[in-house]
């Protein structure tokens, strides 16, 4: 009798529970952002440890132009609020307004990137290259990684604008826009750390 009982045993659910498409995207994307947060934590820790090793080279006080950094911060903050407006229009179901605000967000992001590339080019022109000192290696790695994230964010934004333009504000596109919104605001949060710890404290 016990043998027949064992034979009837099943080790999987008789019926798979129904998972709607994208039901776990939000949590999964959040976990990705948290792991990205750890990457930046390691880069911040590296900068904190070796950021004072100038190797008789230039220090933050010699290099950083705070007016440029303030302009950069303004660009990123403005792009955050315009992305918020895009999300509000998305909720209202207005495709054109959503695309318009996404375009404005992309332009602010592009302006941020251009200012950062200008800053890097200026530093390299001065001889403050990543191989000059441990401080500059850590600086370029930290700020450059953030810049790369912004660049991929812009590529993603343009991709989604094409998607929304072709297919409209479908449920899948709304989900994608929400993930990019998390990513975009997350980058702004990382930038708060960058301008506080690297730029402001470096010049202090």
């Amino acid at each position: 009798m016990s043998a027949t009982h064992a034979a009837n045993r099943v080790y999987h659910l008789p019926e798979e529970p129904h998972h709607p498409e994208g039901h776990s995207t939000y949590l999964g994307f959040w976990l990705y952002l948290m792991s990205d947060c750890l990457i930046f934590a390691i880069l911040f820790a590296t900068y904190a440890v070796v950021g004072g090793n100038y190797a008789a080279g230039p220090s933050p006080k010699d290099l950083f132009d705070l007016e440029l950094v303030a302009l950069n911060t303004a660009m990123l903050l403005l792009s955050s609020i315009t992305y918020g407006f895009a999300m509000l229009e998305m909720v209202r179901g207005r495709k054109k307004a959503t695309l318009g605000w996404l375009g404005v967000t992309g332009l602010f992001g592009l302006a941020f990137l251009c200012i950062e590339i200008y800053e890097f080019a200026h530093l390299i022109h001065l001889g403050a290259t990543p191989q000059r000192s441990a401080f500059l290696s850590a600086f370029f790695t930290l700020v450059g990684t953030h810049g790369l994230h912004v660049m991929f964010g812009i590529i993603w934004l343009v991709t989604l604008m094409v998607q929304v333009g072709m297919h409209g504000l479908t449920a899948a596109n709304q989900r994608r826009l929400m993930c990019l919104s998390l990513f975009w605001h997350f980058l702004d949060i990382i930038w708060i750390g960058v301008f506080t710890f690297v730029y402001l404290m470096g010049v202090l």
């Binding site: 939000y26 918020g84 407006f85 999300m87 509000l88 998305m90 504000l169 449920a171 709304q174």
Partner: peptide, 22 residues
């Protein structure tokens, strides 16, 4: 309705919220 499912997580905020935050 657009999300079709129980997406209480997908809080999109309000204009007022965004402006206060900004």
């Amino acid at each position: 309705k657009a999300h079709e499912h129980h997406h209480d997580d997908a809080a999109h905020g309000t204009l007022r919220g965004y402006l206060i935050g900004f």
